[in-house]
Nucleic acid binder design. Structure first.
Lengths: 349, 349
DNA sequence: GTGAAAGCGCTAACAG
DNA sequence: CTGTTAGCGCTTTCAC
């Protein structure tokens, strides 16, 4: 009879001890950085380990010694570029220290988010990196911190939670983007951002307003749209409505990647239908091929990899016992001019 | 004195038992789907659990009962779009079944890959999804299967490993892409793919050749480049060299996403410098904004989400005891015509 | 219905 | 240098 699939069990330290004819503890010593084991026995043990294909059970170890060598990473959605670049950076920091990542997507659903945090905690993660947390999450996030699990928050400020936070300078970045448009002669700039309940969205809108204020230019609030971007046809309708109206905007700001993509698509479709208005465009968050579009898309870029790296390093500092007050690290965004933001408006000098 | 960070310990079943004044076992019964516990005690236990914020230690449970409710996912690079979309789909399947994902990037490095698989195994993953495995990985992959851990391979065929495999119809997809170019009158089509040691790369090249053969058109092997895409300036040099040479190609095929991006960039830069050749283009693998470029980029799209979902479902079927022979599932790619692949060549009718 | 005792795979604390 | 004993947090017998 052939073996069935799960027939063979993974060998344990006991099996190795038996095979090498030594005590369990001697095996344990060899597996860890052998304190004092005779060269001869150590060799026997190593042979047995190789022969049996033994691998220490990390969780049995953790149960006794504490620590699972695992950290948890909660993302908004693993599949989106910002999340996945962030994840990779955190992973790299963890891997260098012998840690692995339990990764999960909250899908912007606080209930799911809570369930996930619970599932991660019950798997003994030593620390947690939470991207895009909301105030709704605050309660159970605080519970984890109280339970002794260090947490680093990324991309959102959650004042209710006293934890290290890594964010981009959303407000300032948006201000620089809009200021650049104003400098190129634009006065009527349409702004599209996420629901104002989302921290980054309201910050970016604030930056947009600040740029108007700094330039002493009056701002038309009717050009501001704050909501989760609707389906393509609705966006198209919105864009056409604005551009075909009286006193149309001469520039657009995409307050996040999803808006930018949809706006660029709508703008392109309009141009294909023969529209001869060529509004300027600035998007928040860079994306692949932004430079290949015509004109190249000017963006305010945030460095997701740096955010992930810094979040990871912050977390490990805590894991090593650092108990200084929670800090906030704000990363500077950069305005990358590629052409679309440099199209002249009606007031260009 | 305020509590210091890690002062509070996570409560255990014992703590709950003490608080509810019942035995440990009664708590265990309540925490799982209570067999027979009096309503009154069950209530007391539930209160104690809530009051203490108790959460079962999943690994202590696993140690005794077997199973960690965790599966491992090895990707080439979490940060790339194909990997991250795949990951999200696997995650979804796992989450629905109460499982979490331990995710790691192999970074195309077999040594790292081996280390990762080991780290995952030692954390008791019940199963493994490995994207883009290589023959080099075959040995230790087989060891895991032998140890009883089911594995599903994704996006590569590794004949040495007897495991379920989910792949795209790379050869057929590439053939359809090149055939479309030939149908539009192209005879000299430059093909750029990864190192031929990479399974998908050689399959796609084979498809490209097959399209030529099927059309009875002789193929110029000097138009084939198989290597990891070099830096931008080298790609530019390559593209310019081809287009400025005698008998230049009239169409390009990007054999993977990284090549496509670089080729499109080089082609665009050439157009900006005043080049008036407008080669047709087909890329393997879809990407965001492919429809916003001008012309829209025609691609052969593979459904990463479907691959992930199917891989996950296959794995859980194994976890539930299915021990039928390993199967190979080949997903059909689709040719999405957006314009760049439909530009006419010199032999267009 | 409920609980006591044993043990999953490992390490910490002590002896020898 | 090496082995024995206890016990991490939980589930699994098997009694009561």
């Amino acid at each position: 009879m052939a073996d069935t699939r799960a027939s063979r069990q993974r060998p344990t330290m006991n099996d190795v001890a038996a095979a090498a004819d030594v005590s369990l503890k001697t095996v344990s010593r060899v597996v860890n950085g052998a304190d004092y084991v005779s060269a001869e026995k150590a060799e026997r043990v190593r042979e047995a380990i190789a022969a049996l294909g033994f691998r220490r059970n990390e969780y049995a170890r953790g149960l006794r010694a504490g620590g699972s060598a695992t950290i948890g990473l909660v993302l908004e959605d693993t599949a989106d570029p910002f999340s996945s670049v962030l994840a990779r950076a955190v992973e790299e920091v963890a891997f260098d220290r012998g840690y692995l990542l339990l990764t999960a997507s909250s899908a912007e659903d606080p209930r799911r988010s809570e369930r996930l945090i619970g599932a991660l905690a019950s798997r003994g993660v030593e620390g947690l990196v939470v991207a895009a947390p909301t105030s709704v999450d605050a309660r159970f996030l605080a519970a984890e911190i109280a339970a002794g699990t260090p947490i680093v928050l990324v991309d959102r400020l959650v004042p209710e939670v006293d934890a290290d936070t890594v964010i981009a300078d959303n407000r300032d970045g948006a201000q620089r983007g809009t200021a650049a448009l104003i400098a190129h002669g634009h006065r009527r700039i349409a702004f599209f951002g996420d629901d104002p309940g989302v921290y980054t969205a309201s910050e970016r809108l604030a930056g947009h307003r600040a740029a108007y204020a700094a330039a002493g230019v009056p701002m038309d609030e009717s050009l501001v749209t704050m909501a989760s971007p609707p389906e393509a046809s609705a966006v198209q309708h919105l864009v056409d409505g604005l551009l075909d109206g009286d006193d149309p905007p001469t520039a657009f700001v995409g307050g996040n990647n999803r808006w930018s993509v949809r706006l660029l698509r709508a703008l392109r479709s309009r141009a294909q239908r023969g529209g001869d208005d060529r509004p300027a465009f600035v998007g928040f968050d860079d994306f692949e091929l932004a430079d290949v579009l015509d004109p190249g898309v000017t963006v305010i870029a945030q460095d997701a990899a740096a955010m992930g790296r810094i979040a990871g390093e912050l977390l490990f500092r805590r894991l090593q016992g650092d108990d200084s007050p929670a800090q906030r690290i704000e990363l500077r965004t950069s305005l990358i001019a590629r052409g679309s933001g440099e199209l002249s408006g009606p007031f260009a000098s």
